[in-house]
């Protein structure tokens, strides 16, 4: 499997997990409230962020253990992760998800 297809698979997995979480596992009533975004949507994004964050952490751990890994890749991914956590703390899960996926793509680049 080429790196680009691996990336595509990874993103599909993230999206699938997010959808599954939204549909089955995260009760809408427990979500943080928001002025413009319905609770159920917010919680779906929160679940998607959790899934993607776990995937990103696994990639970061693998890169940390790889002596040949690019310093810039890791620095950029960590910077994106850190900003994503700030956004999650502010319940801005949609934008946070975008940054996490960007970080994943930094660590799994196309050829």
């Amino acid at each position: 499997m080429s790196p680009s297809s691996r990336t595509a698979v990874a993103f599909t997995l993230v999206a699938a997990c997010a959808l599954a979480c939204a549909a089955n596992d995260f009760p809408g009533g427990s979500a943080p409230s928001a002025t413009t975004v319905p609770d159920s949507t917010r919680v779906s994004w929160a679940a998607a962020c959790d899934v993607a964050l776990q995937q990103l952490d696994a990639l970061l751990a693998a890169r940390d253990a790889d002596p040949a890994a690019s310093f810039g890749d890791i620095a950029e991914a960590r910077s994106l992760r850190s900003e994503a956590l700030d956004l999650m703390a502010a319940s801005d899960y949609e934008l946070a998800f975008d940054l996490i996926v960007r970080a994943i793509s930094v660590l799994e680049p196309s050829p």
Partner: peptide, 24 residues
């Protein structure tokens, strides 16, 4: 599990409020 999920989401909601609410 359901209790844990409610509690952890509540922790996030408190953090959001502490940081000044949504960045909308």
């Amino acid at each position: 599990f359901e209790v844990a999920l409610r509690q952890t989401m509540r922790a996030r909601a408190i953090v959001r409020d502490a940081l000044g609410g949504s960045s909308a």
